[in-house]
Design a protein around this nucleic acid. Structure first.
Length: 768
DNA sequence: GTGCCTCGAGTTCC
DNA sequence: CTCGAGGCAC
């Protein structure tokens, strides 16, 4: 960090003290000194902002920050002419004196599936009909409305009073912005004749005219203009001082709802009309359509109206109009089945590709990134874009087919860039006519650029990977970042930036997870204590050590996920934790299964070799034979076979994940790192699943004709209640739901003593 | 063997 | 958010 006062010993404390103790010296200040000090303040406050927002590592505490800001304002007041273009007083997103509270959404705020062309819309209609079991000719109405490009907000009313406003956040938890929402004219603070509990959801946005005027104000005050209306709206809503939000021209459209104490209407459109009657702004282009043709026609109409709307939209949203059908359709893991967003084509821009660089990820994957001459795409300046992998640069897809007409991408090329899903910049095309004469095809490295180990590409894989494992500093550091990430250990005050700093620290290196948990004792035994360093103090050092101690008790699933084993993500880690219950049980099973895992790999390789050699004649038999022989050669103990069978029998775990686990546990370096880590930890057993449903944890089989719902619907509903749905009756089956026309399964169930009920009985059981 | 659906991993910008 | 790939049902 650069010192605010030259010669200051580094801590933030001195800085704040200097600022607050001498407010009265300003009058006596020469303009030259004032200008210098404003310059220093701008710099140090900008750094504080950067530290707070990006690195998740506050450089100074809030009181210090506020004191500096006050001093800056006082000097500016005394010398208005000297106010800088980058004055901290005008910066948006100033470090808050207190953060926003968190709000857990009672009904999750989901995102929508995307459609990009007319065919996707027809497909959408088809899949809904098939899920509901509706014939093609049966009427099925949808609503269509513009998709506003703003930020979603959930407003909670109780007894007609606005009591809470929350941003979407990650869908489950958002930020409490109630005070700010109250300043938005379109948001009523009181409703008359509303249900007792009503959560209204909609979009906060800023019109083009208001955006232009706001930016003009910002600029004439020397502030930095917003990149686009969406950022302006987001920045304005997230002000900690609601009075600033009040001065920002925000608007709101209501289009959905969350928790309700009583239904708003029978249809989507009816509910929107009800919201409008309650006093909300609703979008006038919302319309009912009787099928895909009408939906597409309405899409075209909105597309034509788009330039004249006066606010940004990025597509059209279709929803099944009948709310009863919406309820039957329900949700996939992250999106509702009954709605889809038809996106407008992404904005494109051409720019020069200056350089192709290679990044190394935690799994060793070499990912090429395009360094671009900065260009504005969809209201944002883009200077980097992903190039996916070797094949993408070469103009091939995963199957060896051509993309971009087979054109490869070279340094120096003019390339077309777009933001996929309006977020991730990607290189879409190359202008060969502008290719410099000296441009050469990109030579994808065959060795890791970070550690020099060979970078191997397995047959059939898209990624080329560094083979250095933990020897590779890039991989080791990325693995550590993963270990402290939010879904894993989530240690407060130890984010990616800090991990990187600690990784290369000469006094207190953190090279592997275990090092994190020895940090406090090593610090105590060390002369170069953390507390004496620039940017650190007694308090911040203690806070870090305490935060680390807090995570010594850790849910088993987080521990497993944190290890960063390939193919084992958050969900697989939970599956494993739930299945084995303890670290020891899981580790023992994986160890025991090792010979079987090796046999499995040998069999795969043998089959692969055979496949390459053999042509179609009698191939299947020979493959099976080769597999069998390979397994036989391995002489797998029975215990290993059993452990392996259990591992791949675990819900959600297949041979690929199992093999990956096995390799990780059998790798001496990785295993040693685990063995050094575990003594510092107390893994907590997985929480038992909440058994609030009578079918939770039960295995259910449906057979015969279902009359009130389709097969897909029955399955999804059962699974959402925690049941497992299987196709065949076995000893493990808990319940058979048999409709008319059921055959052998009923008999088998009777033989096995499995309880059998009919469809009505099932609906009654699940309370419908 | 084929075709969903979901998960995992990597990615950018604020 | 997207892509590729794993898991699993049909």
């Amino acid at each position: 960090m650069a010192s605010y006062q030259s010669g200051a010993s580094g801590g933030g404390q001195g800085v704040a003290k200097a600022a607050s103790d001498h407010q009265d010296d300003i009058e006596a200040m020469s303009p030259k000194r004032a200008a210098e000090e404003l310059g220093r303040l701008a710099e140090v406050l900008a750094q504080a902002n950067a530290g707070y927002y990006q690195a998740d590592a506050p450089i100074m505490d809030d009181a210090e920050y506020d004191a500096l800001k006050r001093r800056n304002a006082a000097i500016e007041a005394a010398f208005p002419d000297l106010k800088r273009a980058d004055s901290p007083s005008d910066q948006v997103g100033a470090a808050p004196s207190e953060g926003f509270g968190k709000v857990r959404h009672t009904v999750r705020m989901l995102s929508l599936g995307n459609a990009f062309d007319d065919g996707d819309i027809i497909e959408f209609d088809k899949s809904i009909r098939s899920y509901l079991g509706l014939p093609r000719a049966a009427p099925l109405a949808y609503t269509a409305e513009p998709k506003i490009d703003g930020l979603s907000l959930s407003l909670r009313y109780e007894g007609g009073q606005l009591i809470q406003a929350a941003t979407r956040g990650n869908g489950e938890t958002g930020e409490n912005v109630t005070a700010n929402a109250r300043t938005i004219a379109d948001i009523p603070t009181e409703l008359i004749g509303a249900p007792e509990v009503l959560e209204v959801r909609g979009e906060v946005y800023m019109s083009h005219a208001d955006f232009a005027a706001l930016n003009e104000r910002q600029e004439s005050a020397g502030g930095k203009p917003f990149a686009n209306p969406r950022n302006a709206a987001a920045g304005s809503l997230r002000q900690l001082d609601a009075e600033i939000t009040r001065k920002r021209p925000l608007k709101f459209f209501a289009y959905a709802w969350g928790e309700l104490s009583q239904p708003l209407a029978d249809t989507q459109l009816g509910a929107i009309e009800r919201l409008r009657d309650l006093g909300f702004s609703t979008n006038e282009l919302t319309q009912r359509c009787d099928g895909p043709d009408a939906m597409i026609a309405h899409y075209r109409m909105i597309e034509e109206t788009r330039p004249h709307l006066g606010y940004d939209i990025d597509g059209v949203v279709y929803k099944v109009d009948d709310l009863g059908l919406q309820a039957r359709l329900g949700f996939r893991s992250t999106t509702p089945r009954w709605a889809i967003a038809h996106k407008f084509p992404a904005e494109l821009a051409w720019t020069e590709l200056e350089k192709i660089e290679i990044q190394v990820g935690r799994t060793g994957a070499l990912s090429p990134v395009a360094r671009l001459k900065p260009v504005t795409v969809g209201g944002v300046v883009v200077s980097n874009a992903t190039l996916h992998n070797e094949d993408y640069i070469a103009g091939r897809d995963a199957k060896g087919g051509e993309i971009r007409g087979g054109k490869d991408i070279r340094e120096g090329d003019f390339v077309q860039v777009y933001r996929a899903g309006d977020v991730i910049p990607k290189v879409a095309d190359v202008d060969l006519s502008k290719r410099p004469g000296n441009a050469v095809p990109f030579d994808f490295p065959q060795v890791c650029p970070e550690c020099g180990s060979p970078a191997i590409r397995e047959e059939g894989e898209a990624e080329r990977g560094c083979t250095g494992g933990l020897i590779c500093p890039a991989q080791a550091a990325e693995k550590l970042k993963h270990f402290v990430s939010r879904a894993a250990f989530d240690i407060e005050g130890l984010g990616a930036k800090k991990v990187e700093a600690f990784y290369g620290d000469p006094q207190l290196p953190v090279k592997e997870p275990a090092d994190i948990f020895t940090l406090r004792e090593r610090d105590a035994a060390n002369l170069a204590k953390l507390a004496n360093r620039d940017g650190w103090g007694q308090t911040s050092a203690k806070n870090l050590f305490d935060a680390i101690d807090e995570k010594r008790k850790i849910p088993l699933s987080r521990l497993i996920f944190g290890l960063g084993i390939r193919h084992v993500g958050e969900v697989a880690a939970q599956d494993l934790a739930r299945h084995y219950g303890t670290w020891e049980a899981m580790a023992r099973a994986i160890d025991t299964a090792r010979p079987a895992a090796l046999a499995h790999r040998a069999a795969d390789e043998a089959a692969e070799a055979e496949r390459r050699r053999a042509d179609s004649e009698g191939r299947r038999a020979r493959l099976a034979e080769a597999r069998g022989k390979a397994v036989a050669d391995c002489e797998v103990p029975e215990a290993a076979s059993e452990a392996w069978a259990e591992l791949i029998g675990t819900d959600g775990i297949g041979p690929v994940m199992a093999l990956s686990l096995s390799d990780a546990f059998a790798n001496p370096e990785e295993r040693a790192a685990m063995d050094r880590l575990l003594p510092h930890l107390t893994p907590l057993p997985p929480e038992a699943r909440a058994d609030d449903s009578p079918v939770a944890g039960k295995t259910v089989v449906f057979t015969g004709t279902l009359e009130k719902m389709t097969r897909a619907e029955a399955k999804a509903r059962a699974e959402s209640l925690g049941a497992k749905v299987s196709g065949a009756v076995s000893a493990k089956t808990d319940l058979l739901v048999a409709g008319p026309g059921a055959g052998s399964k009923v008999k088998k169930a009777a033989d096995l003593g499995v309880k059998t009920i009919n469809e009505d009985g099932w609906l009654e059981l699940i309370g419908q």
